[in-house]
Write a protein that binds this DNA or RNA. Structure first.
Lengths: 207, 207
DNA sequence: ATGGTTCTGTACTGGGTTGTCAATAACGGC
DNA sequence: GCCGTTATTGACAACCCAGTACAGAACCAT
């Protein structure tokens, strides 16, 4: 028995995320968020508790999308596991993949992992942000490690290799391409880096 | 026949760099820089042309130190090349090494490559910063690639591998550890990632 | 010693920022 | 149709910030 809100919180948080990604946290003002989302300052404070609240909730939404997409893209039968890993790696170096069809962003710097950007910018002084970013990484790490295990079961990756170590390494490469991409390197260069990493994965020794 | 400046520009730029690394560019005010360096606003504007000038010049100083240290740490006879690469990799994942003895920083997030942090935060809207950051990367890439070639000549790395590709990959891993370190992962974890990357370097096939 | 020149510190200004508040509008149960 | 409840809007005050201007201090050549 009250007035319902006239906006979709998810849509608003997504627009705010885009703004944070392009301008950074400290480079984004509340007015910027207001313009990007169409909400007035009052609504922003009432619904999301101001700038910092918007950041935390938009990161949470990002986390949720990531936790839904990545396992779906990587899980599956053992036979195709290595190929799924390959495809994920190639997609990831061109921006964090969050949906099956939509390309992440035209500008590679803004396509960098949202969690990574925020962690590097303000993670040192904002433990909440740091924790959220780490959660994002963890959900990816377990999904990748599981895919590596599947590839090992299928005889495509050396069974003696530690799947968790490999997953961490691959994700570190992906996060590294966020940085290298921000330097302005071409997509072709990023693809080449991803292919090199993939090619170095330890293959099983033929007896 | 005029009053000489009472400060050491290099020392000032270094202090400013520390400030930028810990607070980011937009998170650092001119007063912060003033407090960190001891200089008044007037001197800052006269000597470095304000906040943006301080950033550019401190990045240039960082670039100069990097361009001096990295080649020195990686160059040398072919016999020890692989071991030098190993040592550099291990040092690098704990923060950009800029001198032989000094550890980079107690806080891993602030130890991340200065150029990388700035490129991710404001590189999209500041092409000068982007260019400087890319220069930093280039000087490292050529030094690492040269070391890879030396290791290849010594028979420690597969001669069929492309040394430039390997160099890009290794540097991407290092930049990735900057991000993973900012998430709060332990130094042991970062070391483990570096060791995994090193272990996957392609060894020459024994005939 | 003195004057010209450059550094240094501080005060000031115009603009931008955040967070809050009160007035208004919209909705649904009754 | 009315009323309580909640969203929305716009404005407002306190504050912070970048950049400038000016006055004073330090130096060196003469």
């Amino acid at each position: 028995m009250a007035r319902p809100r006239s906006f979709d919180p998810d849509h608003v948080l997504h627009a705010a995320e885009r703004q944070f990604r392009t301008s950074g946290y400290n480079g984004t003002s509340v007015d910027d968020i207001s313009a990007a989302t169409g909400l007035g300052r009052g609504s922003l404070y009432a619904a999301f508790d101001g700038k910092h609240g918007v950041l935390l909730q938009s990161m949470a939404g990002y986390f949720a999308r990531l936790g839904q997409f990545a396992p779906k893209a990587l899980a599956g039968p053992d036979e195709g596991a290595l190929e799924r890993l390959h495809a994920y790696l190639l997609r990831a170096v061109h921006g964090v993949p969050l949906a099956a069809d939509v390309p992440p962003a035209p500008d590679r710097a803004a396509a960098a992992c949202f969690a990574a950007k925020m962690a590097l910018e303000i993670g040192a002084s904002d433990s909440e942000v740091k924790r959220l970013a780490n959660d994002c990484f963890s959900v990816l790490a377990t999904a990748v490690a599981e895919c590596v295990r599947a590839a090992q079961r299928n005889g495509d990756i050396d069974p003696d290799a530690d799947p968790d170590d490999l997953a961490y390494l691959l994700l570190t490469v992906i996060r590294g391409t966020d940085v290298v991409g921000a330097y302005g390197h071409s997509p072709a260069r990023l693809t080449s880096i991803a292919e090199s990493a993939f090619a170095l994965l330890p293959r099983p020794r033929h007896h």
